[in-house]
Amino acid sequence: MTLQLDGLSCDLGGTRILQKVSGLRAQPGEITALIGPNGAGKSTLLRTIAGIEHGQGALSLDGASLASQSLEARSRALYYLPQDTSSSAVLSVFEAVLLARRLRIAEARDAALVAVASALDSLELTPLAERELAALSGGQRQRVAIAQAIVRQPRLLMLDEPTSALDLHHQLQVLDYLQRFAQREQSILVIAIHDLNLAARFADHLWVLKEGRSVTSGSPGEVLTPERLRDVYAIEAHVEWPTGEPPRVTPLSALRSLGDS
């Protein structure tokens, strides 16, 4: 199973956000981290793959074109977790995760309940199962949203900054769990993320986007160089390569305004 995209473009409000993005060849069981500065088009790219935004270009999963598939058909194979997961819905955590499962898989009630309980347990959400969404902190809500994503067992899971509201413990816990989930389910994971050190630690590949264009992709060691960081983020950074570990990035100074292109 592979995800392939070629020449993917997307316009929003008359502005071209994605400009013929190509190059992603994501494999099952692997995590690809999508990195780049604000406004690079990371969220738009994930939404276009999910079918939430309309795009042009070639997009296929397992060799089957996604472009002609309806939103419902796409959602059976893939899932997009948005960055903003806030909700005032008067639903318990258990109900919200069950909802995500029932909209994806038709099965006996007990099987669905077991799947939900397992997902909650995996993300340390069991104590919150009866709490209402509106009563959760941002980080707890984000973990519930991740539980909603994994309970659907997607072949392709795209997460838009899934750790942005999490404390350090839960950042590591969630990314560690997602890594095991990708390997166990042989799913493709694409994660848009700002923290380069987390990206280097958990992702098999990094894919760099800037101003709606694909800049480069490769292993963390290949991509995270001081020159590349200067070019993409306009920063001076020190990059260490400890033996047997992923590279470590220490930002030193901002060089010039990046703007919000």
Binding site: A50, E72, R74, R76, L99
Partner: peptide, 20 residues
């Protein structure tokens, strides 16, 4: 009923769950 409940999670999440 399931799709209507999902709408309360917001349009983007509802769309991600395959709802037109």
């Amino acid at each position: 009923q399931w799709r209507l409940t999902a709408l309360r999670l917001g349009d983007v999440q509802a769309k991600a769950m395959g709802i037109d």
